[in-house]
């Protein structure tokens, strides 16, 4: 049977805005960018706010090598800058959640390009590798003054970053550390993020003193995720490990603790044998993505 709808030639206004947006929700970043240059109607639809609430750079729709320090070279690095600029020219003010690519090496130019164009960002998931200057961090965190939630990684695990957060970001309520959590982190977040409600430090080495300080001082804390953590302190040159019971004995706190079954948890058993709360990069991507607290998983 022949289709007799001869008038159905997809002229530019035939595919309505809502229909296009529905199709576009299934596209990756690169294909969405290409859709924006098909025609003017498509260009308008490709800027629909609903498409840009989350910009996940792990969903580029391009071949990024699955190894750390990816796109380290100048040419590739420039390509990343172009991607960030173009994506934010389409999504910019509508982007409320930014998830960096796990593998791509982050530069000042990348960070500043995207930060200056996403003024309404509420949550950022930082990448694992890169090199960011103090000025780069300052500019980014100043642009993201309204940010509420950050996943911190080893490359941002420094005083410059924490100070900039303290200086510019007064609305932080949620933090996830995908890196060691030492006493100075505890002091920084107690000072800089007094309204913190959610904290996740899963799968890493956590300082007992730091943890006690946080639980004692951050009065708005509602939930702390300590799954697969190794709580420890350096005492007279050797590590003293602690259990959750030790923690409860030391601090009187009312917030909810999310913990794994310490003694029967396979991950914890393996970790104690292998990495003592310092996971290797090969195992880090899952740790970076997962979280028992839903708002911190991606």
């Amino acid at each position: 049977m022949k289709n007799n709808k001869s008038d159905n030639n997809y002229s530019n206004d035939y595919l309505f805005y809502e229909i296009l947006v529905r199709i576009f929700t299934a596209l990756h970043v690169a294909d969405l960018a290409k859709a924006s240059m098909v025609c003017k109607a498509w260009n308008v639809a490709s800027r629909a706010p609903v498409l840009w609430k989350t910009l996940d750079l792990n969903e580029l729709g391009m071949d990024v090598p699955l190894r750390l320090y990816a796109w380290f070279g100048e040419h590739s690095s420039k390509k990343m800058t172009q991607i960030l600029k173009y994506a934010s020219s389409l999504g910019g003010e509508n982007i409320s959640c930014l998830i960096f690519n796990y593998y791509v090496y982050l530069t000042d130019e990348h960070l500043i390009s995207i930060a200056e164009r996403t003024p309404n960002l509420k949550r950022v998931v930082l990448p694992i590798t890169g090199n960011i200057s103090k000025i780069g961090i300052e500019i980014a965190m100043r642009s993201w003054g309204g940010i509420e939630s950050i996943t911190v990684t080893e490359m941002f695990n420094n005083a410059n970053f924490l100070n900039a957060v303290g200086k510019y970001c007064k609305n932080i309520v949620s933090l996830k550390f995908t890196c060691l959590f030492e006493q100075y982190h505890a002091e920084a977040i107690v000072n800089y993020t007094p309204n913190l409600r959610t904290l996740s430090i899963r799968h890493f080495l956590v300082s007992m003193r730091g943890l006690c300080h946080v639980l004692n001082s951050l009065e708005h804390l509602e939930v702390v995720n300590l799954c697969h953590c190794l709580i420890t302190d350096l005492l007279e040159g050797s590590f003293q490990d602690y259990s959750i019971e030790d923690l409860r004995e030391r601090v009187d706190f009312s917030c909810e603790l999310i913990i794994c079954k310490e003694n029967s948890c396979l991950r914890c058993t393996n970790r104690l044998r292998n990495d003592r709360g310092r996971p290797s990069y090969e195992n880090m991507e899952d740790i970076w993505r997962e979280d028992e607290i839903e708002s911190l998983a991606h």
Binding site: N9, N12, A30, D31, K34, A35, V38, C39, W42
Partner: peptide, 17 residues
């Protein structure tokens, strides 16, 4: 239309640039 050129997409939908 994933990973196709802009020209391909225009032809696919019969869209004029």
């Amino acid at each position: 239309i994933a990973n196709k050129s802009v020209e391909y997409v225009r032809r696919y939908f019969g869209i004029e640039n």
